[in-house]
């Protein structure tokens, strides 16, 4: 056995926590010992530092550390992959502006939509495209509460996938203004739902 570690294991926990305070402050050790089971293993090992106990501690720690590393790895993977994916998707969109011959899985109406796109853009408000996509009754009610402009902006964002900049150019306004209109509209929708939820609860209490 390593002399350094055998020296470490020959002390009591309290002494170690004082002497090696920076070691116990290491995030991985700190979190490791928050688990009472791990703490028990450590105290047992310190009580009787037999090779069996030390082995047990080593194993428990290694598994724990491995999990932590995997977790970290996956978190960074998810983050960086999503950023990368968006970059690639954007590039793709720049290069191939319209893909007419391929239908997007569930709707399969890419061609119809694009065919009408230019004409509809002029009279987006009349076609009221957003509520025609929605089946939820509450949502339709909520949409009716919005102003015409809010509805139009939401339709452009969600049905046509236009960016704030493009919409701003359409209205001859600033992108910041479009962003705030969109925010307010979504807030209104959300508020409709929370109010509605509250009303329903109240009703059920009375009934």
């Amino acid at each position: 056995m390593n002399p350094v570690t055998s020296h470490f294991f020959s002390h009591s926990l309290e002494f170690l926590q004082q002497q090696y305070s920076s070691f116990f402050e290491q995030p991985i050790i700190h979190v490791f010992l928050q688990n009472p089971e791990h703490m028990k293993i450590l105290t047992e090992t310190l009580d009787s530092p037999s090779s069996h106990n030390i082995c047990h501690l080593n194993e428990a720690f290694q598994i724990f550390y491995y999990r932590a590393k995997v977790y970290k790895y996956m978190c960074s993977l998810i983050y960086f992959f999503s950023v990368d994916f968006d970059k690639r998707a954007r590039k793709q969109r720049e290069r191939y502006r319209m893909v007419l011959d391929e239908a997007p899985g569930d709707t399969g109406r890419m061609i119809d939509r694009i065919g009408n796109n230019d004409v509809q853009l002029e009279k987006l408000g009349e076609t009221n495209d957003l509520s025609s996509h929605i089946t939820d009754e509450e949502m339709i009610k909520a949409l009716q509460k919005l102003t015409a402009k809010q509805k139009l902006v939401l339709t452009m964002i969600f049905s046509y996938g236009l960016s704030n900049k493009e919409i701003a150019a359409y209205f001859h306004e600033s992108p910041q203004n479009i962003s705030s209109i969109r925010k307010q509209a979504l807030k209104k929708l959300r508020k409709h739902y929370t109010d509605e939820g509250y009303n329903r609860k109240e009703k059920s209490h009375c009934g």
């Binding site: 570690t5 030390i54 501690l57 080593n58 194993e59 290694q62 932590a68 590393k69």
Partner: peptide, 11 residues
């Protein structure tokens, strides 16, 4: 991915 055990980490 490899993780050190307790003793290795301590040393």
């Amino acid at each position: 991915i490899e993780a050190p055990n307790f003793e290795e980490f301590l040393v």
